[in-house]
Structures are given as C-alpha cells and as structure tokens.
C-alpha cells in the first residue's frame, strides 16, 4: 500500500471518521502488515496523549472585556448621530486652545464694530419710511373719497372713520367732508362729519364752512351738535348764522333754547 494512502487512512481511523466497518477493515489490515502496525502503535498513543494536555479555563476578565467591546459597538451602531457629533468634536479638539481664543476675540471685536456702525440712523431708511407714510396717506385719502360716494350709509360712516385716521386732510377731503355735512341724507353720517371737521377747526376755511353750515341744517340733532361746537370754538362769526336760524319759523324749541344759550356763551 502506498505510504500516503496509509497515512490518510490512519488519520481517518484515529480521528473517528471511519464507520464501524471501516474501522474493522483498518484493524485487520494493520494486523496483517507488521510494518504498518509498528507505525500505528507509535503514533496512536501520541495522538491520544494530546488530549491529556491541561488547558486552563479562560478567566472572567476575558468575558468582561468582550462584552464591554460588544456593548460599545452596539451603542455606536445605535447612535450614529452621536458618532457624527463626536467626529466633529474631535475636529474641534485638534484646534489648539490659544488659536481658538484668538478666533473668538476677533469674532467679538467684529460683532462690536458692526453693532456700533449699525446704530447710526440710516437716512435712506427714514426716507423710505416717509415715502411709505405718504403713500399710505394718499391711499387712505382715496379710500375716504371713494367711501363717501357710496350709497350705503355704513360705507359712508366707514369713510368718516378712515378720514379721522388721516394726519392731514387735503382740500379735496375737506370739501368732501363739507359736502357730506351739508347734503348727506343720513343724520348719523352728518354728525360724524362734524366730528371729523372739528379736528381741522384751526383752519379758517373749515371754521367758516362750519359757521355757514349752521343755517343749512334742518335736523335738530345736527343743529345742536354744531351749536355745541361753536361754543367750544368760541366762534363769534357763528352768532349771525345762529340768529338767522332762530328766525326760521319751524325751529325746534329745544334747539331754539340751545342756540340762545350758545349765543350768550359766545358773547
């Protein structure tokens, strides 16, 4: 038998890879071949002797280190964001502290300079604000004029409210307000028109218009409101208008009494 084949066969026998029949076959073979018997005896005990080697038990420390390592790997896998953050932190950690401090100082100086430069008023911004305000006034004025022409009394009252918001009324607005005061069919609208015009009573044209309007009013409520306004303004030119109104035959007694009181107050 070839040497190599016998070596393979013997190892198969020793390692227990042969079945029962194979083992018997092998034993029969070596029994009939003394030279192979010698070799088999020589190595079989050595093979079994290896099993008798004393191998210590691994310590608990090995388990601890392994599970520490595994725990760390699992944690890193579960928190990739933290890992990313750690990587970023490590980049910053590589920056030396004096350099970082110097960088921070420069940043603070830059911010301070920027703050002081920005604190000065910017004329362009103010101009823009004025332009913006003027535009708003123009739009509002247009709105007032449009609303006063509306057939709905509510809309006209809304127009009066908008007129009250104007900082300075133009001639067109004053004219529209007087038209409303003298010609509007709704008494409430006329009353609100008095209030709006009272705001511009410092203007002679407005005062004159108000005085003239007294004789034109038919509603007692409007007449009383105008009389009160004249007293408040101490407008002496209004006496003539009020006397003219007193001479009207269908004047309300309350109004008559109020006008006389007002004339007396102004005189």
């Amino acid at each position: 038998m070839e040497k190599e084949k016998f070596e393979i066969w013997m190892i198969e026998f020793l390692s227990g890879e042969l079945d029962e029949k194979g083992q018997q076959e092998f034993l029969n073979f070596i029994e009939n071949n003394p030279e192979h018997q010698e070799e088999f005896n020589a190595v079989s005990n050595t093979w079994e002797g290896i099993d008798a080697f004393d191998i210590p038990e691994p310590s608990k420390k090995m388990d601890d280190s392994f599970f520490d390592m595994l725990h760390l790997k699992v944690e890193n896998q579960e928190s990739p964001k933290l890992d990313w953050f750690q990587k970023l932190s490590s980049v910053f950690n590589t920056i030396q502290k004096p350099q970082l401090a110097f960088g921070m100082l420069l940043l603070v100086i830059g911010l301070s300079v920027g703050y002081f430069l920005n604190s000065k008023p910017d004329p362009k911004v103010i101009e823009v604000g004025n332009v913006s305000n003027t535009e708003t006034e123009q739009v509002r004025e247009q709105l007032v004029l449009t609303l006063l022409e509306q057939p709905s009394a509510n809309k006209r009252l809304q127009g009066m409210n908008e007129a009250a918001k104007l900082n300075d009324a133009t001639e067109r607005v004053i004219e529209a307000l007087f038209t409303t005061l003298n010609k509007d069919q709704n008494i409430n609208v006329r009353l609100v028109a008095i209030e709006s015009l009272a705001k511009y009573a410092d203007t002679p044209v407005v005062r004159m218009g108000l005085v003239k309007s007294i004789a034109l009013q038919e509603s007692p409520l409007v007449q009383l409101a105008l009389a009160d306004l004249m007293v408040a303004l101490q407008e002496k030119t209004s006496i003539e208008s009020m006397k003219e109104l007193l001479q009207q035959p269908d004047i309300d007694n309350t109004v008559k009494q109020k006008l006389q009181e007002s004339i007396n107050h102004i005189i």
Binding site: E4, E7, I8, M10, I11, E12, S15, E39, A42, V43, T46, W47, I50
Partner: peptide, 12 residues
C-alpha cells in the same frame, strides 16, 4: 490528513 499524520510523527 497527510499533514496531520506527518505532524503527529514529528511530535512523537
């Protein structure tokens, strides 16, 4: 298997 056998002989 041959390697194992020869290693065993060397050990012996």
């Amino acid at each position: 298997k041959v390697k194992a056998h020869r290693a065993l002989k060397d050990l012996r």
